[in-house]
Design a protein around this nucleic acid. Structure first.
Lengths: 172, 172
DNA sequence: CGCATTCACTTAACATGTTAAGTATCTCCG
DNA sequence: CGGAGATACTTAACATGTTAAGTGAATGCG
């Protein structure tokens, strides 16, 4: 699994490369990507059994926690772009997992809510989902996990909006 | 930016929901996603100016650090799936940023390497890229960044392969 | 040797990410 | 009130993510 054949060829590779650029596999974006993938890899099989993708699950979870929402608000909550959300909502509606109705006061807005079927589906996924989360917590350590979550939040906040300085000393 | 109109409608929403599921926006996958997006948002404009996507940049960086590589090895290094890599390599080759040649010893394998043009392009992007990284380091704090990187690596390792226990105390 | 299996990719097909353009509705100001 | 501009989506178009299937080249074993 770790060894590859044809390694005899490598003996003839040029030497070169003094500065390996500090191993780009340790760069922050790569570490975040890999960490997230490692986490999601735990969840995907269970979601898949229930016919849900990661994004669909995010939407249902978001809806379950906020009752009804406008599409724009839902996009913000589930961290999806409008076009992605638009497509996924179309599919979820066709599967009767959500419901939409145009807002009375503003014909442009549509209110989205989870349907009875959607609630049932969530109920059937939640147990295994929570078990997996618990397993992750146990493997990595609850204390460390909390720390990590805190740092991730801080990182996001420290990189938000302002173009230059940090927000605690923002002059606005 | 924070207030929404039409809130008067919400008064008629059913009460319900005792357990808000601990705000799913604070779940680990979501935090990782948001953090990564916050980071990449810093880099994308610069990459875009040079006509590169995030993935293309990953591939060039990977190639720059390992001279030549088989496609499979490159996929592992740049953390891309085979099909994505296949397509992107096709495009990068058409733009003369990389070169490929079939391995002498094994006709199935193809060796990919960065071209002279590719090296030049990297050289033109690297400065602003490093400046952005430095800016991030400064905003978040070098110390905290190092800690975060360490934790992300640990998280990934702790979730690797084994189906149940953690590897330090694994009973195999 | 011969042929089933494995291997290293590539293609295909479909979902999502991402930017730009389109559509209907609403707001506001003259 | 009426039309310019802003809003809330939706569509379109293209790149990537993701799984499955296809293709051609090595391997292994009888």
């Amino acid at each position: 699994m770790t060894k590859r054949p044809a390694d005899s060829e490598n003996a003839s590779a040029p030497a070169a490369r003094q500065v390996p650029m500090r191993d780009f596999s340790r760069s922050l974006p790569m570490l975040l990507l890999r960490a997230r993938e490692a986490v999601m890899r735990q969840f995907r099989p269970s979601l898949r059994e229930h016919g849900l993708t990661e994004q669909q699950w995010r939407i249902l979870r978001a809806l379950a926690s906020i009752e009804a929402a406008e599409v724009t608000e839902l996009a913000r909550t589930a961290f999806l772009l409008g076009p992605s959300l638009s497509r996924i909502l179309r599919d979820l509606e066709a599967r009767n997992l959500i419901e939409r109705k145009t807002a009375k006061a503003d014909q442009r807005r549509s209110m989205v809510s989870i349907s009875r079927d959607g609630v049932k589906l969530m109920a059937s996924v939640a147990p295994s989902s929570e078990a997996i989360y618990a397993e992750i917590t146990q493997r990595f350590g609850a204390r460390k996990l909390a720390e990590l979550q805190e740092m991730l939040g801080e990182l996001e906040r420290s990189l938000a909006a302002p173009g230059a300085a940090d927000e605690t000393t923002a002059e606005e």
